[in-house]
């Protein structure tokens, strides 16, 4: 800052206006920064992967069935006691894991990780079962929140959402 030797501790007019200018500059940059951050934050459209997706009505899915939702990137599995929404992404290195209906398993083509219907690892390098998305059933309609990924160590019946 400009020297103010005359009276130590006294702020000169130039220092005062310099500080005001500096502070306004900081405030302006902060505003630009927040606008920039909001502007560049990805916009995810309603119903797309990353939002809450309407999967369908409960009675549309038979017990024991595995239904693939390609746009929303998950498998909707109906077991005896309820539903699981399993993320299609292999927990090993992120490949898309196809469901093999004839064998009743998920078989990852990249490094041959095999998963049960519940998503548990049968063999291969996958470190943990297939990840889950939370399911909510309202008025008989299944909604899957593809914005929240649940990692798990093993399959537990309490991960099921009862119909």
């Amino acid at each position: 800052m400009t020297k103010s030797q005359d009276k130590p501790g006294q702020v000169t007019r130039r220092e005062f206006f310099g500080a005001i200018f500096g502070l306004s500059l900081v405030a302006m940059m902060a505003q630009f920064g927040s606008v920039l951050a909001r502007f560049l934050e990805p916009v995810i459209e309603e119903g797309a992967f990353g939002t809450v997706v309407r999967a369908g009505r409960v009675e549309e899915f038979e017990v024991g069935s595995v239904n693939y939702f390609r746009q929303a990137r998950f498998y909707l599995v109906r077991l005896e006691d309820g539903f699981l929404a399993e993320y299609r992404k292999c927990t090993h290195l992120g490949c898309v894991v196809p469901w093999i209906e004839e064998e009743g398993i998920f078989n990852c083509p990249c490094h041959s990780s095999l998963f049960t219907k519940e998503g548990e690892v049968i063999s291969g390098p996958a470190p943990r079962p297939l990840d889950l998305f939370p399911i909510e059933i309202r008025d008989g309609v299944i909604y899957v929140d593809t914005g929240t990924i649940i990692e798990r160590e093993a399959f537990h019946p309490d991960q099921l959402t009862p119909a």
Binding site: V35, R38, F39, V43, E45
Partner: peptide, 13 residues
């Protein structure tokens, strides 16, 4: 249209 209606501050930009 997307920029103007969905992106925050898109209309402003």
């Amino acid at each position: 249209i997307f920029l103007q209606t969905k992106v925050p501050y898109g209309q402003l930009m």
